[in-house]
Amino acid sequence: MPAMQNAYPSTKLSVHDTVKTRTCTSCKKTISPDEKPVIFLCPNCGKVEIIRCNMCRKQGVKYVCPVCGFVGP
């Protein structure tokens, strides 16, 4: 059991890290963990998450839904 107890947190940590890695839908850059991007389902189809980094959001950079092609904002 001790071995499993050791393995469990590290597995959890790596899953956690994968979830944390986010890419901006507009500029495709990886968003740093300390940044708070906006995340919402595509307004049109609702099938995929749109993620906008602070820079793209601030500058009103367009985003395109990879599923339905909706162009926002």
Partner: peptide, 9 residues
């Protein structure tokens, strides 16, 4: 209007 910070116009 400026659109910065707006996610759906």
């Amino acid at each position: 209007n400026r659109i910065d910070g707006i996610d759906l116009i």
